[in-house]
Write a protein that binds this DNA or RNA. Structure first.
Lengths: 210, 210
DNA sequence: TTCACAATTGATGAACCTGTCAGAGGTGGC
DNA sequence: GCCACCTCTGACAGGTTCATCAATTGTGAA
């Protein structure tokens, strides 16, 4: 019987990858807690349980590390949304589920969500994370006539901004799932759905988390 | 003939106020340029054309100064919007004008607008700046039946987030006034206006800047 | 003019942060 | 087992930031 093939051939690469990931994870935690990048490299290395000098084996500057940490968190967030919405056909329901799921993730994955709230907006039009997924759904909805949109970019900015506004409200005031439904309803109206239809789609049962 | 009465009685207070305002203004510029607060107190004092020690006569920490700078900019932004919208009766038109004006201000007052984009969202539900003004207009519109809203707080988060999304899009891609009209139209839909009416209000002539 | 008081100023030393580097320790080929 | 190679590690020097404080300058009243 053969051993399960390890993901990488040799231990050099695995050891290296482990150190790097420890640094990224520490940076994500710090970012989610304090919201800024002022922690010293010493502190980051200590929280990653890694020697100080190791930092410079992986990143040239602190900015480089935090950029990697943000990208890491946004990609994880996008994949979480994808895993739930990939089997939904109606683009309106996809948007609605994404909005409502975002609020649930704020409770179950607070660290990822904090980074989305604090750093997500500049990435809405980037080619990773939430942006391209939402853009794809907006285009599908527009082509099929379900959404009434003139400029998809403006709509994407509005939807992305509104979702981050919801996270902000949640952080500031602590809201419940009902607020997620209402935000989804408002966003569906924004996309051109009639009032009643927006309400109906926004209150459909949410797909189960995997 | 009497001298025009100075705003403050003695020069002690005026001198002090001048130093403080120079520091706040320098902090605003730095915030708008770099987006972060990592500049040293030495650098801030130099840009304010003020001695290093003077900083500590007015602020205990750098955070305190930057908080004051953000509050200063948001209040200025709110007053700019007020000065244009105060004579508008229709709450839908007030919201529309505020959205479209925000994009104009991004060109004429880039420094204020950058701070709104970077730091505005956490203040949407505060009691200064844009928040209370928008909340007031939302309440008026809801009471009069022009807006169809269940939870005003959620709507405020959505509107605030969408506006900051517009500023983000402008910073990233450089958009024109047409995008402001489209964003206004989307936000009016969100508030419950029918498609045609949202379009009509969003394309009305904008009041002149003072 | 003289005086008391308030605000400003930059020098100072302690604390901190960064990037480097030589040595230690783990890894795989032979 | 041995050796070349790769990664990790923390001490160190050089530079920067911070908060304090004694001296200086500006202000208004007598």
């Amino acid at each position: 019987m053969q051993k399960p093939t390890p993901q990488t051939a040799n231990r050099f690469e695995r050891r290296r990858a482990h150190s790097r990931q420890a640094l990224v994870t520490a940076a994500r935690r710090i970012l989610a807690e304090s919201g800024d990048t002022s922690a010293s490299i010493q502190e980051i290395a200590a929280r990653a349980d890694v020697g100080f000098g190791t930092f410079y084996n992986h990143f040239a500057t602190k900015t480089e590390l935090f950029d990697a940490a943000v990208a890491d968190a946004l990609e994880e967030y996008g994949q979480l949304l994808d895993s739930v919405t990939q089997h939904i056909d109606d683009p309106a329901e996809t948007i609605s589920a994404s909005v409502r799921l975002t609020l649930i993730l704020a409770a179950t994955h607070p660290e990822v969500t904090q980074i989305v709230r604090l750093r997500g907006l500049p990435h809405v039009h980037a080619d990773t994370g939430l942006g391209p997924r939402a853009l794809r759904d907006l285009e599908v909805g527009r082509t099929s006539g379900r959404f009434v949109l003139d400029d998809t970019k403006v709509a994407l900015s509005a939807v992305g901004g509104a979702m981050i506004g919801l996270l902000q409200l949640n952080t500031a005031a602590g809201i419940d799932a009902k607020a997620g439904e209402q935000m989804a309803e408002l966003i569906l109206r924004l996309l051109g759905l009639p009032l009643e239809e927006a309400h109906e789609v926004a209150t459909r049962p949410l797909p189960q988390l995997p």
